[in-house]
């Protein structure tokens, strides 16, 4: 891993009006890796990844300090064009949130938004995105049907396809499998190892096995602090911090 980090975060702190939700987070993410963020509910994992694509902007009274760079762009820059940033850093949410449109239109939404109008070009993008998300075989014959008719697991893979159709560099995933059944979860985990060939994936998860199975690095958050971060195998087998050990052995959380 001697590459340049794709996301570089230095002493990032965040406040919701008066309560501090993130404390001095310093962490790097490298290209083509799967990075798991673990920790108990309310520890700041989701808040952290929503800082990376500035989705926290939706909440008023959010204040941040420190530095977060995507390549050479300061993400916190108030003058930054967030639509450009979000094109580079895509996101998949906890609950599948397809738009109430056809499967095709869901996938084509992003490319269309960014100015692609050519029919055959869109067709290609949709097909490739669905194939990358392992959804093509199930949906190729009903692209014009509403996405709301898909099962939960299919909807989530559709959301992944929708995110990668924009061709981002980084893919943020906020507990993408927590609302899904085990089979759908397994399918998405399988996907992760394929997707990391093209993207950098940062995944928030509650599920320790998931982190172990599918991530390269693991970072443990507790009460807004980054307690420990490193190679997944090492974090799970030889945690440096007592709190990490307590958490992964299930003593709290």
């Amino acid at each position: 891993m001697k590459q340049e980090p794709i996301i570089r975060c230095r002493k990032l702190s965040l406040w919701y009006s008066k309560t501090q939700a993130l404390k001095d987070i310093t962490i790097d993410f490298y290209p083509n890796s799967v990075n798991a963020l673990i920790g108990p509910s309310g520890c700041g994992k989701s808040t952290f990844i929503k800082t990376l694509n500035r989705l926290n902007d939706l909440i008023s009274e959010v204040r941040t300090e420190g530095e977060v760079f995507y390549r050479n762009t300061e993400i916190r820059d108030p003058g930054l064009d967030v639509t450009d940033l979000r094109k580079e850093i895509g996101m998949v949410f906890q609950k599948p949130n397809p738009f109430p449109m056809s499967i095709y239109d869901n996938i084509a939404y992003g490319p269309r938004t960014h100015g692609i109008r050519n029919r055959s070009e869109l067709d290609d993008i949709v097909e490739n995105a669905l194939k990358s998300a392992a959804l093509w075989d199930e949906t190729s014959d009903r692209l014009r049907k509403s996405a709301m008719g898909l099962s939960g697991g299919q909807q989530q893979r559709l959301c992944i396809a929708r995110a990668i159709a924009v061709q981002p560099q980084v893919l943020l995933m906020d507990e993408p499998t927590s609302a899904l059944d085990p089979i759908s979860t397994a399918k998405i985990e399988e996907l992760l190892s394929v997707l990391k060939e093209k993207f950098t994936i940062i995944i928030v998860t509650h599920n320790m096995q998931q982190a172990m199975r599918s991530s390269d690095t693991t970072s443990f958050f507790l009460l807004g602090e980054l307690v420990e971060s490193g190679n997944t195998e090492q974090v799970f087998s030889h945690p440096h911090d007592k709190r990490t050990e307590d958490y992964i052995t299930g003593r709290f959380g």
Partner: peptide, 27 residues
């Protein structure tokens, strides 16, 4: 209109106005 629709569109890099026009208003 569920907030998740707005978030979904914004996360794809859609601007606010575009999000409202394409996702919020139709619903």
């Amino acid at each position: 209109v569920p907030q998740s629709y707005r978030e979904g569109a914004l996360a794809l890099g859609s601007g606010k106005g575009h999000t409202i026009w394409t996702v919020v208003l139709p619903n």
